[in-house]
């Protein structure tokens, strides 16, 4: 599949939030203000773009049946390996950013530990295996999915900031109305189906 088309598809059509519900916990919890939503969105793009290709290499050279480095079929270790790589990468990225750019660390820092348990990161790696991507496709897919997540969470945060001034029924306040809005946003994103470049 052509890479640009894959990128567009993973941002809009197969959006992590609207099509697969991945990363919903932080999507709902960290979407109260646009500024924090931008921070989390950037961190997710960052980590997904790094971990998906790394996990691709692990899968291809170590875990897969008939992999070149290990003779034994280790596919059953997939989950443990992937989550360990993700947790380690998040830790590493956190340390590097803290050293290199304290300003960026100040704005991204608090979101990085949250990301290790964000379903969209592990989901990205598992989808990459399931769909048999090549290394280039895996990188584009990681970046595209991250961008799709960032787009969705920033848009939702913008809507929720305005929502504070509306008169919502008591039981629907907070989570309830957010779910309904997410549903409506999902319908809007559905209109991208069929777009290919």
């Amino acid at each position: 599949m052509n890479l640009i088309s894959l990128g567009i598809e993973s941002i809009f059509v197969k959006n992590m939030i609207f099509a697969y519900f991945l990363g919903m916990c932080s999507f709902l919890a960290v979407s109260k203000k646009v500024s924090t939503a931008i921070g989390l969105g950037a961190a997710v793009i960052f980590v997904l773009t790094i971990t998906t290709p790394i996990n691709w290499l692990i899968q291809e050279y170590i875990l897969k049946e008939g992999a070149s480095l290990v003779a034994v079929d280790l596919t059953f270790l997939q989950y443990i390996m992937f989550i360990a790589i993700i947790a380690a990468m998040v830790q590493l990225v956190e340390m590097v950013i803290e050293k290199v750019s304290p300003a960026l660390y100040g704005s991204l820092g608090i979101f990085l530990p949250l990301i290790a348990v964000n379903c969209s990161i592990l989901g990205g790696s598992l989808f990459m295996v399931q769909r048999d991507y090549t290394l280039a496709e895996a990188s584009v897919f990681g970046f595209g999915s991250g961008t799709g997540f960032a787009l969705a969470i920033i848009a939702l945060a913008a809507i929720r900031e305005k929502l504070r001034y509306s008169n919502v029924p008591n039981g629907l306040k907070g989570l309830g109305i957010t779910m309904l809005i997410t549903g409506l946003m999902g319908i809007a994103f559905k209109s991208f189906i069929g777009i290919a470049l």
Binding site: A19, F21, G183, G186, K190
Partner: peptide
């Protein structure tokens, strides 16, 4: 579709 789940859970 996924959208139905959001709306049902919201309700």
């Amino acid at each position: 579709d996924s959208i139905g789940a959001f709306i049902i859970l919201g309700i």
